[in-house]
Structures are given as C-alpha cells and as structure tokens.
Design a protein around this nucleic acid. Structure first.
Lengths: 224, 224
DNA sequence: CAGCGTGCTAAGCAGCCGACCAACAATGCT
DNA sequence: AGCATTGTTGGTCGGCTGCTTAGCACGCTG
C-alpha cells in the first residue's frame, strides 16, 4: 500500500562512514557545509548512498546528533558514578569539542523544527542529570541550597565552558587559562574545606555518608 | 583603468532596508536563510539591489554585523559611564537578543574566513572594554584581584547569559528565572556590603569616588 | 534453477543559489 | 536645455542543492 521507500540497514558499515563524515564536516566547516554531495565526498562514497541510508538530510543530522548525545549522557552517567564530585561535572563540561558541537547544532536548529525538538529533548534530559548530580553533591558537602543554589552552579559552569568554546572558535582565548585554573583551584578548596566540615559533622550526628564520598576515589580504596 | 564596479551610496535608505531585512532573517531563521533573494523579498525589493549595494553576500553579512557591534560597543561605553557598576555589566550582557545574534554569527564564521576575522576583532575589543570596566569596578569595591579575578567574573557573567540564550532558543528555560534572581541579589548584596566597607576606608584615606557610583539609574530601553 | 532482498550506482529532475550585464528611470548639476 | 550620476530592473549564466527513478550485481533461500 504505502510503498515505503527502501532503506539500508541501520548497522551497515557504510552508514557509519557517512555519519562520521557528516560529523567531521559539521565540526570543521559548520552545518551549511553538510550537504549530500560533500558528505559523500568526505566519506569517499557516492552521493546517492546518503538517500539510500537516510530518508532526508534532516534524518542524517538527527542521527549524527543522537549518536553524540547518547554517548554524552552515557559517559556522564558512568563518570559521575565513579567519582561523584563537582570536579567531575566541571571536567565533563570542559570538553570544548562537545560545546562546539552543541553551538553548531543549536544554530542549525534555529530553522529546522524537527531538529530543534530532538535537541531540546536531549538538552532537557542532560540538564536534569547534571542538576541531580550537583544537587546531591552540594548536599553531601553540606552547602545550603538557598545560599548556593545547584541550578546556579550548573548554569555558571556550563556557561563558562560554553563561552570559552565560542571564543576558541573565534581564536580569542584571553583569560581562558586563568579561568580554568581559578575554577580548578576553587573546586579544590571548596571540596577540601567542606569535606572537612562534613567530617566534623559526621562525628557528632551519625548520618550515613554516601559511599562515593568516603576518602577520595572509590577505585583507590577498593583496589588493594 | 580598473573599472571598479558601481556601488550604491552607503547612506542610502534602500541599503538600510536591506540590512534590516537581512538581520531579521538572520535572527529568525538562521544564517542559511539569508540569501539574496530572500533578503530582497523580506525587504520588498528586487534581488539585484543587493549586488548593487554590496559587492558580495559576505559583505552584506559583515555590514549587518558591524552595525550591531558598533552599536553594542557604543551603548556599553555610555552605560558604564553613566553607572559604573557590576549591575550595569550584568544587565548589558543579559540582552538575549544580542547573545543569540552572536551565536548565529559564530556558527556562520565557522566557514567564512573573512567574517570570522571581523567578528574576532570586535569580540576582542568588546572583551577588553568589559574587562577594563570590571577591573575598575572591583578595584573601587576593594575586591582583591587574586581572590576574585576580574576575568573570571567576566567570563562567568557572559557565560551564564550565553547559555541562557542558547537554551531559550531551544525552548528550555528551567532555572533561568532563579539564576537571574540569584545573580541580581548577589550583586545587590555585594555592592552594598563592599560599598559600605569602601565608605569606611574612604573616611580615613581621602580617595575620590567615581561619580557614576552614586545611586543612579541605567537608562531603560525597549526593543525596536 | 528462479525468486528475492540487499548494497550500490548512473542519470536526471526541478529548484534555488550568487553573481553579472545591459538597459532603463530618476535625480541633480551646469 | 544637456549631461552625468545614481537608483532600479529584466534577463541570464553556471553551479550546487535535495531527492527520485530505474536498474545493476551479488548472495541467500526456496
């Protein structure tokens, strides 16, 4: 009846090559450079293959994004599980590559509804994950949420990395090093001080502490 | 002779109409939507006029950007002169419209060298202005630069507004209100406390205070 | 063996793109 | 009035775009 169009297998090797090529072009030359012919050339394949594996160019974009988004969410989850700390959240956001990817996609999403919706969905999911993590971390540290709201910390962190990514793309990097160092030092100090305070508190009231926070890394303690 | 191409007057009314139309399209649909024919249609003019007033489409983009950039720099200069305070810097960066504009342009600059260079130049200039202002303000407030480096404050401020602009474009606004309020309150408190401290210090040593710091209003301005 | 799904490709469509040119209209200067 | 400058237009060019259709060669299964 509906005579659905013939499509290549999702696990095909060629398909992955096309996605890789598209992503490379997207990062290097911006979304306007991601055309069917250029992607094919980048992958050293014939242009028609794109429409064999993807219904439309929008589908290609979505698939490129989904791959990275899925990977990002997964990585964050495991990273935060291994070492639940502000530093992990910060380090994770500091991936300029990912930030650049995001900026480009948002610009693209500006005039492609289908893509915007998808990106928005992942953005929401990721934000919730980060917020949950930070909330828990700050709570562990004993930071009162009304004085230092988790959402503000989160927005500030991602904001700083984002503006750095944007400026790096422009070749303007003044103050980036200093800012990175400062935040690093700040987190260091904060975690040390508050960690100590929390230790004190734990001695009096017998509140069970999340395992992840006990004396440094989980892996170190359990390794010997 | 070099037989230079005929070009319309820079102060022409039609030219301004074209620039306005281009800017509107840029903000509404992204840079990929800014084509000669579409811009002309948006301005209710003939497409050929674009190449009468601008050598190439890149030139059009550059002119669109320069206008806004020039205006931004000018406004910031006067605003900071009227009321030299952190609040002014913050308020100024909070213009989501400008942030969105920037994001779009950076994405565009990704694959147009001439445009990137121009944007980078303005970005550097603007950053220096902001940094100078913040440095002076913090110094006035008596904040030691090694504890609270101006560059970090600046990057954090612009970063927060930028991430909010990016998310707003996606329709994700969770926590924006809270963050705005928090920063507002923080600046309020900081300026009050440190202002008082500074007052105390001024009593002993007779340092003149910038007039701008004496309780004033930032000129409110509606969007066009 | 025929039949069929799969990966791939040659050829081509309509449409939009930036840019150019020759010509016409309006304006202002002398 | 004559003339030059400035503003505007119709027409067109080669090139790139997303996407389609028809078909090829291969391996699997009946």
């Amino acid at each position: 009846m509906t005579a659905t169009k013939r499509l290549g297998a999702p696990e095909s090797k060629t398909r992955v090559l096309l996605l890789d090529a598209a992503e490379r072009l997207l990062l290097r030359y911006g979304y306007a450079a991601v055309t069917s012919r250029r992607v094919a050339a980048e992958a050293r394949l014939k242009p028609q293959l794109i429409h064999y594996y993807f219904l439309t160019m929008d589908d290609l974009f979505l698939e490129v994004y989904r791959r990275r988004a899925e990977q990002g969410i997964e990585r964050f989850a495991t990273a935060i599980e291994v070492h639940r700390s502000l530093r992990t959240v910060w380090r994770f956001g500091t991936d300029l590559r990912w930030a650049a990817f995001n900026i480009e996609l948002v610009a693209l999403a500006n005039h492609r509804k289908a893509i915007r919706d998808e990106i928005a969905r992942y953005a929401r999911r990721f934000r919730e994950m980060q917020l949950d993590a930070i909330t828990a971390i700050l709570e562990d540290l004993g930071v009162p949420p009304d004085i230092c709201p988790p959402i503000v910390v989160l927005l500030a962190m991602t904001g700083v990395t984002q503006v750095m990514a944007l400026e790096t793309a422009l070749g303007v990097t003044t103050g980036h090093r200093e800012t990175m160092d400062f935040v690093d030092g700040w987190i260091d100090k904060g975690e040390r001080d508050l960690g100590a305070e929390q230790e004190r508190r734990r001695d009096s009231a017998d509140v069970p502490t999340p395992m992840a926070f006990r004396a440094g890394a989980v892996s170190e303690e359990g390794s010997s």
